[in-house]
């Protein structure tokens, strides 16, 4: 299997788990064991869009219990017997190999997966940001031996890209330090907020410089934040920014 594999570096490793549960997109080559009409193939493929039952294959990393997975899209890109080239957009944890096997069963001729390439996971896709291991090692060579960091700085994206697909809250400087110490975000600390945030949604907290401060759970929808003047808007879950990056501006509670 080849394709999009985002790798987080250093402290950014804490964020990469957020991608694991995101929607995936693949292109796959299916090999049919006997010829079928293209129209019939298209018809059967359509039946696999939506909620499907799947039992993980024998060699898998999860418990082999029947699971329900959602397939959002299947597109037949090319068909020349025995090969069918498919584009599949599905929920994380969907086994494409199994999906193709099951399509073969319904077709009544049998099929198996020949090749698989991931073209998307979360915000990461096959675009100009995608780099090969070769390009990366070349960039590292230039940096270490020629003292030229330009290639490496283009090859490594700022960690903020990992949360680029999430809705965001941008906070004022005065709120950054408290959040980096684990405090929740109160409404007065907000400078900008995305519309359409729902209560319970995972959101990314940014500084006005565009630095990721933390990831948290919205306790209020955007509408509720706009209606109220105070209260906790986001419960801080995972802090990324190092403490001490921004000056402390809050006061300790006065002890009586």
């Amino acid at each position: 299997m080849s394709g999009v594999l985002p790798v987080a570096l250093g402290s950014a490793t804490k964020l990469i788990g957020l991608i694991m549960l995101s929607t995936k997109e693949y292109v796959a080559v299916a090999q049919l064991h006997e010829p079928v009409e293209e129209a019939r193939l298209r018809e059967v493929i359509k039946e696999f869009i939506g909620r499907i039952y799947q039992r993980p294959p024998l060699r898998s990393s999860v418990k082999r219990a029947l699971r329900v997975k959602t397939v959002y899209e299947i597109e037949l890109l090319e068909y020349e017997f025995p090969y069918a080239l498919l584009r599949i957009k599905c929920e994380h944890g969907t086994y494409v190999r199994k999906l193709i096997h099951d399509i073969g069963l319904i077709l009544g001729v049998g099929a198996h997966m020949r090749e698989l390439r991931r073209i998307r996971t979360g915000p990461f896709k096959e675009d100009s940001t995608l780099v090969t291991m070769h390009e990366l090692s070349e960039a590292v060579y230039l940096y270490r031996n020629e003292n030229d960091d330009s290639a490496l700085r283009k090859t490594i994206l700022p960690a903020e890209y990992i949360v680029s697909h999430m809705r965001k809250v941008v906070v004022v400087d005065g709120a950054v330090s408290a959040i980096s110490h684990g405090a929740d975000l109160a409404i007065p600390g907000i400078s900008m907020i995305h519309e359409n945030i729902r209560r319970g949604e995972r959101v990314a907290i940014f500084s006005l410089k565009g630095e990721i401060v933390a990831v948290g759970r919205a306790l209020m929808s955007t509408e509720e934040v706009l209606e109220r003047r105070k209260g906790i808007a986001v419960k801080t879950r995972r802090v990324i920014m190092k403490r001490g990056t921004y000056p402390r501006s809050w006061r300790r509670k006065q002890s009586k």
Binding site: M1, S2, G3, V4, L5, P6, V7, A8, L9, G10, S11, A12, I16, F124, E126, T129, L130, V131, T132, M133, L136, Y143, D149, L152, R153, T155, I156, L157, P158, A159, E160, Y161, I162, D173, V176, S207, K209, G210, E211, I240, T245, Y246, P247
Partner: peptide, 24 residues
């Protein structure tokens, strides 16, 4: 204080970066 993410040095990116790797 703080720093624009676009101005991170290579060393800083090695601690707060991500590579969109094309896995062979």
């Amino acid at each position: 204080y703080g720093k624009l993410p676009t101005q991170r040095s290579a060393e800083e990116l090695l601690d707060l970066g991500v590579v969109n790797l094309d896995k062979p």
